[in-house]
Design a binder for these strands. Structure first.
Length: 248
DNA sequence: CCATCATGGATAT
DNA sequence: TATCCCTGATGGC
């Protein structure tokens, strides 16, 4: 396969994999690992701005932001905007795996996540964004999972109880699986609207994320910056738990 | 043309 | 908690 860096910022890396045969691609949480054999890996993390563009021959000219183009005679993939695009070896790959929490899409056991939730007084909204607690969930799924569970984002994790911890895990796992299947971050329930999942688009894609009003109750959605990210939640559908003396 | 915002994370303080 | 990096779409002048 051919590799090049039209933008130039990954010129050395592209040269290194140019002409090699890709053996496989692994996804761990939000990290992608391209296996070039002999312990050589391309590590990609899309971050906030990263994206792939897929082309069929004849390929369009790359943009001036295209950091990496990988191509065969028939197909090309362009990568731009990624937070991480780097060649690494086995030790660095192992370190990535080691620092990530369980990823439901890999069939990892939920134990470590459940134990973290049981132990910590950190708000559940922060735990869900912590990639060492749970791999793969970002802001959309975090907001929508808490909505699906009727949980106040600021509730200290351990006050929710083990049954709710399990439910949060299950909901996140279901969202991630749906994401793989559909290629979209749909979190609404087809049964609630009587239409197939494929029709849950636009204004019916999510219940609270980036919405002015709750898709379920019609009440106002609250929006607030929390640790650098914007939380969205419905205070009517996700009421705070009553204070229990000595619980937090 | 410019400001603003976005599915993320590392680093400084 | 603040700042910076990465890119692209959008909307207001």
């Amino acid at each position: 396969m051919g590799a090049s860096s039209p933008q130039g910022r990954f010129a050395d890396g592209a040269r290194e994999i140019d002409g090699r045969c890709l053996r496989g691609i692994d996804a761990v949480g939000k990290h992608l690992l391209y296996d070039w054999g002999e312990g050589l890996w391309l590590h990609v993390h899309l971050g906030l701005f990263g994206r792939f563009r897929y082309h069929v021959a004849p390929f369009p000219a790359p943009r001036d932001t295209t950091r990496l183009r990988m191509e065969t005679d028939a197909d090309a993939i362009d990568l731009s905007g990624a937070t991480i695009c780097a060649l690494i070896g086995d030790p660095e790959r192992d370190a990535i795996l080691a620092r990530l929490g369980p990823d439901p899409l890999r069939g990892d056991p939920s134990d470590a996540f459940l134990e973290r939730c049981a132990r910590t007084a950190t708000p559940i909204a922060a735990v869900l964004m912590d990639q060492s607690a749970l791999g793969g969930v970002g802001n959309v799924y975090r907001c929508e999972a808490l909505f699906a569970c009727g949980v106040d984002p600021f509730a200290p994790a351990r006050t929710l109880g083990s049954a709710m911890h399990r439910r949060v895990w299950d909901v996140c796992a279901a969202f991630l699986a749906t994401g793989v299947r559909t290629g979209r971050t749909v979190t609404t329930d087809p049964a609630e609207f009587g239409v197939p999942l494929s029709r849950l688009t636009g204004a019916r894609k999510n219940y609270v994320y980036r919405r002015a009003t709750c898709l379920r109750c019609g009440g106002p959605v609250r929006r607030e910056a929390f640790r650098g990210r914007t939380l969205h939640w419905c205070p009517a559908c996700q009421p705070p738990l009553p204070d229990v003396p000595g619980s937090a």
